[in-house]
Amino acid sequence: MSEQSAVRRQRRKRLAARSFEWLCLTATFLCIIVLAALLSGIIYRGAGWLSIEFLTNGPSRFPDQSGVKAALIGSVWLIGLTALISVPLGTGAAIYLEEYARPGILRQFIQTNVSNLAGVPSIVYGILGLGLFVRTLAIGDTVLAGALTMSLLILPVVIVAAQEALRAVPDSIRHASLALGATRWQTIQHQVLPAALPGISTGTILALSRALGEAAPLIAVGALAFVSRYPLGPMDKYTVLPIQIFNWTGKPQHDFQNVAAAGIIVLLGVLLCMNALAVFIRYRYGKQIRW
């Protein structure tokens, strides 16, 4: 009789395990289905509007003459400048925190703040950028002001990613270098940084791809909704892909919805390329170094 109940208990346990597995599978599929529906809807509406002209035309009053050229080049400028600003700053901060700072109140304070900053809503950075860069420093509503604002936004992410990459370099390498009479800086420069570089670039690229999709903070710092010419320098006015897409979706003519879908495809294409690059770097260089 007790044997019977033991068998029953076993069966119930197995059933619970099985149903949990199914629950997780359903959750996964639900996510994939939503994503697939979203993507197929966009591709269905936008694919027909994709053409070479769509990439080479600027904005227009007419849907069939509209293109993403100004926004695409604006996005490239913005991301390029953001990378130039945030990579040295973020890597430098990470090196300080990981390689130099002694454990203590100061390091704890900086670390906590970096983590907190990563959680601040992006519009707050936009308002900060408006006050600090556009007005106080009088940079104006230029692509440089946008890039500075975006750098603030992604710096915490870049710092944390770079810290993790530096931490993954084993101490035995640092010790080997120091024991050979290298200074701390030579050790960082010749051993630690090269070993951490794939990790740092992967994290940075992922952070930059987040910046690529942001619209809210850029509206605050004055990215334009309609520019017929693209920026030629850091002090030019600009627009970016997400704002251009947002602008199109707000237009009354129905065809502009399809133009917006085509714009989204371009944006997703750029994002996918950046993520693929990150995966490639991790795969290519991560495999080389096995400690």
């Binding site: 084993p170 035995s172 390498i173 010790h175 080997a176 270098s177 024991a179 050979l180 009479g181 290298a182 200074t183 030579q186 010749h190 051993q191 070993a195 080389q288 170094i289 400690w291």
Partner: peptide, 26 residues
Amino acid sequence: VGMVFQKSNPFPKSIFDNVAYGPRVA
């Protein structure tokens, strides 16, 4: 005063660059 560690810890570089590292940083 040179040191050899318990677990060998070559740099992830070429054989030449490993040996040349000390003189180079000097």
